[in-house]
Design a protein around this nucleic acid. Structure first.
Lengths: 151, 151
DNA sequence: TTGCTCATGTCAGGAGTTTGACACAGGGGA
DNA sequence: TCCCCTGTGTCAAACTCCTGACATGAGCAA
């Protein structure tokens, strides 16, 4: 693929562009997580939702949607699935506003703890192949990219 | 969000994990590309397909699917859309094997050239906020991560 | 109070993607 | 030769996600 000669063109190959590499890494991560979470009966958005609710109990549907980068409508479907599975509870009414706070059930905590080990293994496997000193820079770079594009 | 004190726990917050940042950046890129390409009547997979075919004419359905990180079935739908739009031609038969080579039409080249400028603008906008010296390292890191996870 | 704006929850429709399955073509070993 | 395995194209069904739309509730200004 790579030619040994110095190429004057700034963009020689699609596979050398940042967008392509980012998509590739994200697709690989998504595939690995999807495969690992299937054994626990969870999808990637469902897991992400549980993780957020564990760290910030009481989040509403819209807040969870923003935190997992999906629309409110998609998160609504995810929440319904988690509620039917008995992993979360969602208030039917509220005394102030329209946002309905959501909380993990005992089963939700257990399921999350089980799935988390598998996901963390993937995360550490992914982190392990990187030079330790570049991890912080990598996190900062990804953050800057997302912010620039309106993430 | 961030606490100024040094935290001994290795994983203090979900938003500090590499997987979360990667997903966030990829979601932001996807959204920006989707919005930009809509003005040209293309979806992100369609654009990726055209880009690959421009650099490597004659690729088959399965090869395009691997190159864009989707399944053969999804790429089949994408190709049908591109063919109906008159942007590509696909051989109906082949003398050897089953793979049907695909090529860009004149309209395909024109549409790609138009859309490419918009996508490149996003790519450069994204690259521009990064320290120039870290771009190569970032590309290498993303590649290593994908390879480790079986991308 | 009234009207405007914003955020939230929800419904309906459609587009995109995946899993599962089947049939066909080529290569290699028994 | 025959059989097995791999790779490819395709169909069907289900799932996921998004766009568009509407109604409700809170906050603010005239």
């Amino acid at each position: 693929m790579s030619n040994g000669t110095t190429d004057p063109t700034p963009i020689p190959d699609v596979t050398e562009r940042l967008g392509y590499r980012l998509k590739r890494a994200a697709a690989a991560l998504r595939g690995a997580m999807d495969k690992a979470l299937r054994e626990y009966g969870l999808t990637v958005p469902q897991y992400a939702c549980l993780e957020l609710l564990d760290q910030q109990p009481g989040l509403s549907n819209a807040e969870l949607a923003r935190g997992t980068f999906v629309t409110r409508q998609s998160m609504n479907v995810v929440l319904r699935g988690l509620k039917d599975a008995g992993l979360i509870t969602r208030a039917a009414t509220t005394d102030h506003g329209r946002a309905l706070p959501t909380h993990l059930t005992e089963d939700g905590h257990r399921r999350l703890a089980a799935a988390r080990s598998a996901v963390y293994a993937i995360d550490e496997k992914m982190t392990g192949v990187l030079p330790a000193k570049r991890l912080a820079a990598l996190l900062a770079d990804l953050d800057r990219m997302a912010e620039t594009l309106g993430g």
